[in-house]
Design a protein around this nucleic acid. Sequence first.
DNA 1: GTCTATAGGTGGATAGAC
DNA 2: GTCTATCCACCTATAGAC
Lengths: 211, 211
Amino acid sequence: MTAVENASARDQILDAAEALFAVQGLGPTTIKEIGAAAGQNPALIYYYFGSKEELYRAVLQRVIGAMLARGEATLDAAPTPPEAIRALVAAQLEFVLGHPNAPRLLVRELIDHEARRAEAALLQLAAGVFKRLCGVIEQGQEQGVFRRDVEPRFAAVSTISQVIYFTIARPAIGLFFGEGSRGVSEATARAFGRHAGEFALHALLVAEQIA
Amino acid sequence: MTAVENASARDQILDAAEALFAVQGLGPTTIKEIGAAAGQNPALIYYYFGSKEELYRAVLQRVIGAMLARGEATLDAAPTPPEAIRALVAAQLEFVLGHPNAPRLLVRELIDHEARRAEAALLQLAAGVFKRLCGVIEQGQEQGVFRRDVEPRFAAVSTISQVIYFTIARPAIGLFFGEGSRGVSEATARAFGRHAGEFALHALLVAEQIA
DNA sequence: GTCTATAGGTGGATAGAC
DNA sequence: GTCTATCCACCTATAGAC
């Protein structure tokens, strides 16, 4: 009955809902299912969140907030544009390893956008990360380390796409790598993360800069 | 009542279902909705397909078949590994412009895999395309035009990820490009396609090969 | 804050006429 | 092959006891 225990019941619902929404999506996930997974009475969901939709929004907010904070902190901390690219991709990979639900929720939300149910907030925030990364790439071009015949905004999309797609397509990639359709091992995922940073860098660096 | 008209009723259901499944997913799309969108009686869906699930499978089969045929033909026709990379990315972009539902259905299916509903066939086929592309990259490495310090399978994933992610994230990218949250223009999409081919090539080519 | 019971609505699927 | 009518299961949400 204390504030802590209340928060805990609420959080257990949030955690269970996040996992179920990520794997099944909003529609097919039922209130009863969430209650059972959370070890809580389904009626509590209405007490704490009002409706299934609002619970879904709360789940999204939490995930997006965490992802964004991580991305911005990483970009801010990097000393040079090439380091920023490498660090961002590495942070992206570490983030999705720790929060495998995040890209699933995010991508579902993007696909659902034309179903007019997506949060405008998500779109704004996603666009915000792109802009920050784009600034870093422009800076690298001004410093003469990145090629000038690259559209910075396009390059930002290409850079970010790799880890997200890798995570989403993990079952198919697991088969491709002979590691089964349940997805690749964590070691392979980390190796891909290092590759993705280098791949983007080599695509961006002027030829003389390449070691 | 002719065979052609029968096929037409069936195809109208398939077309309507494809669009609805792509935008909303399987769960939230109702049989009645599909019937209305197709201009057909919902009961016909059971006559032709047996169940909602089997209709969904038929939709997937059609899309995957088209995508695969296009990809393999493109790779087969390219004379050199660099040309193959460029041509594959260009074909990918043209395909998604013509079939905007395809990547949505495919990515939904991948995300849903842990919900144990995905087709093993899709995973096998996706892995097949990766393998073909991977062979092209290895060939380029043997010929000395592509860098040897790149894992070919990772590079295949990075190359393919760009256009698919661009399509999925189109609403966010639309905002980012100041073209509204309904997505970017076709001209911008084509420009991105050209960029993505070059991005992957620069990431792969040995330094001396870069013009 | 937490639980039970249930109302109210909708969805997938089928039976059977035409 | 196509349509109408309908059954049954299930889901969201609420009312109200504790």
